[in-house]
Simulated assay, not measured.
Amino acid sequence: MKQFNPIQQTLTLVKKDLVLELRQKYAFYGVLLYIVSTVFVINLMIDRPEEKMWNAMFWVILLFVCVNAVAKSFLQENRGRLLNFYSLVHPRCFIAAKLIYNILLMSLMSVIALVCSVIFLGNPIISMGYFFGVVLLGGVSLSILFTMLAAIAAQANQNAALMAIMGFPLIMPLLMLLANISRSAFITVYQPGLPKMFFLLGGLDLLIIALAMILFPFLWKD
């Protein structure tokens, strides 16, 4: 693969992950079962929650979906396979491919989680188009953050607990930001400061991507 340019290397790695996901369908169906069962259990416990609780529970569900779906992208790679990739591809191409693949996967999972939540928990959303867009943005943000955390944890003897410990102080501000942005979908009154929160979310995503591109080559060497 060394004769390929960076774009070709990245796309080849993305294709590799897609092929593996299609072959190992149990992983995808496992996350899908987690989404459906979690939303169904919430429905059995509290039936149709009010707007604020519905919004809060949806983002908590999406958080744990992201942990299950994205974390395995690095944790499933053993040392031998990583060593093989180290000799074939550039580290930035490798992390870029993981980011792209996890963004695609989490976007799909976010849509599935939204559909299941509307079916089982009711639909208190006033502006569905706006909320759908925020859900996609939130899925992208969560996937970017946990891809970076999974990359770090993978270099620490595949320690998934390390990812959870590092992720807690980072994920709380992101979840609060997403919950505040999505709140406008449940009300008809304009929410002040909304554009600033979108810029903050976009800036946070760009910062994490930049850190991943800068730091991952050093992690890769270890």
Rank of each mutant, 00 (worst) to 15 (best):
I112P: 07
A113D: 09
S141P: 07
I144E: 12
G138P: 05
L99A: 09
G30N: 05
A153D: 02
L206Y: 02
G193V: 07
E50I: 04
L204F: 10
R92F: 09
I100R: 05
A150P: 03
T147R: 06
G129A: 15
M197R: 12
V135Y: 06
A185V: 02
L104S: 10
A210N: 07
S73N: 15
V60S: 12
I208Y: 04
Q9C: 08
L105V: 09
R183S: 15
A71N: 10
F120W: 12
L175A: 06
L121F: 02
L13M: 09
F168V: 13
Y101E: 03
Y190W: 04
V60D: 04
F218W: 15
A150D: 08
R23H: 12
T12H: 12
F28E: 09
Y190K: 12
F168H: 04
A96H: 04
A56T: 15
T10E: 08
G193H: 06
R79H: 14
F132N: 07
C66W: 03
Y26C: 07
V70H: 07
V39K: 02
L88P: 08
G80Y: 05
A27H: 10
C66V: 12
Q9W: 05
E51T: 09
M163Y: 01
F198L: 11
W220E: 03
P49K: 06
V89R: 10
C116H: 05
T12F: 13
Q155E: 13
M197Y: 00
S73R: 06
V39S: 02
Y29N: 13
N84R: 13
I181G: 06
V135M: 11
V14S: 05
C93P: 05
A113T: 15
S73H: 09
F4N: 08
V39F: 02
L174E: 06
I119C: 06
T38W: 11
W220G: 01
S117D: 04
Q3F: 15
I61C: 08
L33N: 06
T38I: 07
K196L: 11
I61L: 15
F216S: 01
Q24M: 09
A156P: 00
I171G: 04
I7Y: 14
M128Q: 11
F40S: 09
L145M: 14
I171W: 01
